[in-house]
Simulated scan of single mutants.
Amino acid sequence: MKPGLRLQGDAAVSSPKLRETASGDPVDVAVGRRLRALRQGRGLSLEKVAARTGLSIGFVSQVERGLSSPSLRVLALLADTLETGIGGLFEPGGTDRDPIVVSERDRPELRLWRAGITKQLLTPVSGTRGLSLFRTVLEPGASTGADLFTHDGEEAGLVLEGRLTLVVETRTLHLAEGDGFRFASRRPHRFGNPSARARAVVLWVNAICANADA
């Protein structure tokens, strides 16, 4: 496992949280295909990825085949291991080699249906490092779970609609519409929508510097 990279709860191979529900969802299939391409492009075997993440070989294989819908914590762990960010898990689209604009109708979408979280990528898919801007929608009661997690980079955001509960280390922060935030992603964190009735919409930024591992 990379120095400083931690994932609580889902990281244990024997954890019942790794018994993901069989999916076959088109979004899960697309994400799995992208993960496989990134892994193979870096010359890593399933065994090496499993060893570095603490996940089982079988589970990583199921995620790559779109048979399991991973949590955001697992996706962050895999993204770090494959030296990319969450934005790098979206498949590049179109033929433009230097994309600058993403139209609303062409936004790639990552639907974490088990968690009730949907992330739309608002910026073009680029390299493994850089800045990604998301429109993140949390359905009523949606969350990343009870476990804190960490990953490379830095993140910031603005609550556009509803409310957001953000936990960073030992601090529990309650944000309302119009509130913004920023923190280093290496600080253990989690987040969720505390409302049982209304969704939350957050403009979310993830940034990974080119020299993040230096």
Rank of each mutant, 00 (worst) to 15 (best):
G43Q: 08
A212P: 04
T81W: 10
R187W: 15
P70E: 05
F191S: 11
G32L: 08
T123H: 05
S126A: 12
L158H: 14
I57Q: 13
G93M: 11
L67T: 15
P26N: 09
A51G: 15
R199S: 15
A115P: 00
R36C: 15
S69Y: 01
L46N: 02
G54D: 03
E169C: 13
D28M: 14
G24P: 14
D152R: 09
P99A: 00
R6E: 15
E109P: 04
A184S: 07
R129T: 06
S56V: 04
S69Q: 02
A156V: 02
A30T: 14
G85C: 06
S56Y: 09
Q8C: 07
R114C: 02
P188L: 01
K48H: 08
K2S: 11
S15P: 04
P124F: 00
L160F: 12
T95Q: 08
K17N: 09
P92D: 09
I86Y: 01
D147P: 05
L133V: 08
T150K: 01
A115H: 06
L55A: 03
L121I: 03
L164R: 03
G87M: 08
V168Y: 12
R65K: 10
S103I: 05
A196F: 09
L38T: 04
V27H: 14
A146L: 05
V102C: 04
R197H: 10
L121C: 10
I208T: 10
T53I: 00
L121E: 06
R34N: 11
A176T: 15
T128G: 13
L72Q: 11
V159G: 05
R199T: 13
G66L: 12
A142G: 11
G43Y: 08
D213F: 11
K119Q: 13
G85Y: 03
A37V: 08
L72E: 03
F183A: 01
R129S: 05
A142P: 05
F90T: 01
D147Y: 09
S132Y: 13
E109M: 10
Q40C: 07
R19Y: 04
V101S: 08
P92N: 07
